[in-house]
Nucleic acid binder design. Structure first.
Length: 289
DNA sequence: CGATGATGAGCAC
DNA sequence: TGCTCCTCATCGC
């Protein structure tokens, strides 16, 4: 259930909680037996996030475990992973590839990984290959927006597709895509080459500002102060995705800004949400290329 | 109690 | 573009 904020949030939690600890690892479903066996009994070193990918390293081991949650994967921790819940001494246990039928993590089991797309060992070269194919991650301090702009400015690909392209905006997923386009009043179907530089800069700056809030809070909130439930005197959003948003999964409901029903269309196999009024169909513009 | 869909993405055609 | 894989809450009968 992850966009990049989840990957970065969990990498931070692992580093906070498990640094220097001996990890005992199993793969109850057998799907990730190789990875589990390789790290079993090793000392956790550090986890690093790149977009939606995570790399988990152990002392004395060049390879790292590459985890990608896909659409359905999720981490579970004992009782919210407060320090008090992690046994102070001895080995801690991770279960890589379990289901709800195996029960929630308990006792010395402090972390479960359910349903990830990927949980594989990677050599340093393989890690480089993966990360070199990703664009500049707005959640990484060293991210250079010129890499994304170089692609955006010269393609007829719609911005809605570019935002989902991990080679351009790694870590961005369906929620951040819909919300950032809404926040800047941009037609999702606008070709990248029609995006003005100042619009691109505003989108990039917004991702750099918004995504860390998702990392901090563990949910995606994108509404501006004047559109919060308190400010508008409306009921808060109740669905379990949690965050207060403008258009994501609000098809048919009135736009929080103008009241127009939020639109929904299947686009490249994914649900695309937008406000037809706040994000009017683009007029042809001078191309950037 | 089966069907559905969902914050993803690689691959075949 | 469509199929595939993964999990499980939610929905309709």
């Amino acid at each position: 259930m992850p966009e990049g904020h989840v990957t970065h949030r969990i990498a931070g939690m692992l580093n906070d909680q498990f640094s220097g600890r001996v990890v005992e690892s199993s793969s109850p479903q057998g799907r990730f037996s190789d990875s589990a066996a390789r790290i079993d009994g090793r000392v956790f070193d550090a986890a690093e996030a790149w977009g939606k990918h995570m790399f988990v390293g152990f002392e004395g081991m060049d390879e790292r475990v590459n985890i990608h949650l896909g659409l359905l994967g999720k981490f579970f921790f004992t009782a919210g992973i407060e320090p008090a819940d992690v046994p102070a001494t001895g080995a801690i246990r991770w279960r890589l590839g379990v289901s709800a039928r195996d029960g929630d993590p308990h006792g010395s089991v402090v972390m479960d990984l359910r349903g990830p797309n990927v949980c594989e060992l990677r050599t340093p070269d393989e890690v480089d290959t993966i990360t070199s194919k990703l664009g500049a991650d707005p959640l990484r301090g060293d991210a250079d927006p010129e890499r994304a702009w170089a692609r955006v400015r010269r393609t007829s690909t719609p911005v809605a597709a570019l935002l989902m392209d991990q080679k351009v905006f790694p870590g961005v997923g369906n929620i951040y895509r819909a919300e950032v386009l809404f926040r800047h009043g941009i037609d999702p179907k606008m070709p990248g080459k029609f995006l003005r530089r100042e619009e691109f800069d505003a989108i990039w700056a917004d991702l750099v500002a918004l995504m860390p809030l998702g990392v901090r809070d563990g949910r995606i909130d994108t509404v501006r102060p004047e559109h919060t439930p308190e400010a508008m005197g409306r009921e808060p959003r109740v669905d379990k995705h949690g965050g207060e948003v403008y258009v994501y999964r609000r098809a048919g409901q009135p736009c929080l800004v103008c009241g127009t029903p939020v639109a929904l269309e299947e686009f490249a196999g994914r649900n695309l949400f937008w406000c037809p009024s706040c994000q009017p169909r683009h007029r042809r513009r001078r191309a950037n290329a």
